[in-house]
């Protein structure tokens, strides 16, 4: 039997293992890869992490609450496409503008969030009200929402968002563009909700033991519904950020991001069983993936190596998860 303080220390180390790994990886890359160690590279890693990272916030909340949402990638694309169609000036864009010009920021953001929330609410309806399996429901959404993206755009792309929106993706603070700061702000806000508010505590407990939370009078259905809507809206935010970054949207925008987000979530220490994980870990997971992508680019390796390495990383992360569970079990 360990002394409790030792136990807490080991718990802390295991929970933050991914930050340690990130640090080691960055040091190794900085030493072995020429030109890796410079502020521009690190800023680029943070910028690259914006979209998968933001999407991973919502995905993490859902998984910690003991559910699953495969639809976030398509939701991201839908929100980006709606933003592009309404406010871009070329291609399929309709170029709606406002006076004063800056009004386009809150309006386009609200539209993107609403689009995401609507998809989330649809998922919640089938999962909570009709008691359908979340995996199947959100897999269906993954497909039909992507179909909707193609349908509303007619397969065309929308280009050239107004400068009043674009500046968020161009202007930097401490070498990092504003959209990346928005994503980091999202991580901090939702980490606070998860750790410090009753809502966060409750969804974590639902993910841990549904029966116990039900018996304690916690409204599981209501909270699950909110979590799905939140995950959708956050995916909408990610889509809005990506539309700003690419100055518009194409019908296949964001393809493959779902698995990167899953990889980040798992690497970040979120258990797919539910109830376990932190958003700080998930952000480290996203940064780790981006660091490796950047290393591959710098070394001039073909891009498909990225996929092989990402796949390997997910396996390593699962292995670590199993190992951690094993260590924790032996601590009793």
């Amino acid at each position: 039997m360990f002394v409790s303080r030792q136990m807490a220390t080991i718990d802390f180390a295991l929970d933050n293992l991914v930050w340690l790994i990130l640090l080691v990886v960055l040091v190794v890359f900085s030493i072995t890869i020429p030109n890796y160690f410079q502020i521009g590279i690190f800023a680029n890693i943070v910028e690259q992490s914006t979209f998968v990272g933001t999407m991973a916030i919502g995905l993490s909340l859902i998984i910690i609450a003991g559910n699953i949402d495969l639809s976030v990638e398509s939701t991201l694309a839908l929100a980006a496409m709606v933003t592009g169609l309404l406010f871009a000036t070329r291609g399929a864009g309709m170029g709606f503008a406002f006076t004063p010009e800056w009004l386009v920021i809150p309006i386009s953001l609200a539209v993107a969030l609403l689009v995401g929330a609507a998809v989330g609410a649809t998922n919640a309806f089938f999962v909570v009200k009709l008691q359908m399996n979340a995996f199947i429901v959100t897999l269906a959404s993954f497909i039909w929402v992507r179909g909707l993206v193609v349908a509303i755009s007619g397969g065309r792309s929308a280009q050239s968002l107004p400068d009043s929106l674009r500046f968020l993706a161009i202007e930097t603070v401490f070498y990092v563009p504003l959209i990346a700061w928005i994503s980091i702000g999202g991580f901090i806000a939702f980490a606070s909700i998860l750790n410090r508010m009753p809502f966060g505590r409750h969804i974590r407990m639902i993910g841990g033991n549904k029966v116990a939370t039900f018996r304690a009078g916690i409204k599981i259905d209501r909270l699950t519904t909110i979590t799905f809507i939140m995950a959708g809206a956050i995916a909408g935010l990610a889509g809005w950020l990506l539309a700003l970054r690419t100055s518009g949207a194409t019908a296949n925008l964001g393809t493959g991001m779902l698995f990167q987000a899953f990889a980040a979530v798992v690497i970040g220490g979120v258990s797919l069983q539910g109830g376990v994980g932190s958003l700080s870990g998930v952000y480290a997971g996203v940064l780790l993936l981006s660091s490796i992508n950047t290393a591959i680019n710098l070394m001039g390796m073909p891009a498909h190596f990225t996929q092989i390495i990402h796949g390997g990383l997910v396996l390593v992360a699962m292995l670590l998860d199993t190992l951690k569970t094993h260590i924790r079990a032996r601590m009793i």
Partner: peptide, 21 residues
Amino acid sequence: DLSLCTNVDVVANFFMGREIT
């Protein structure tokens, strides 16, 4: 084991659904 969430600490379990804010 039907009334506790083992994934959170003792305090969280003690005040489950009746948290003080």
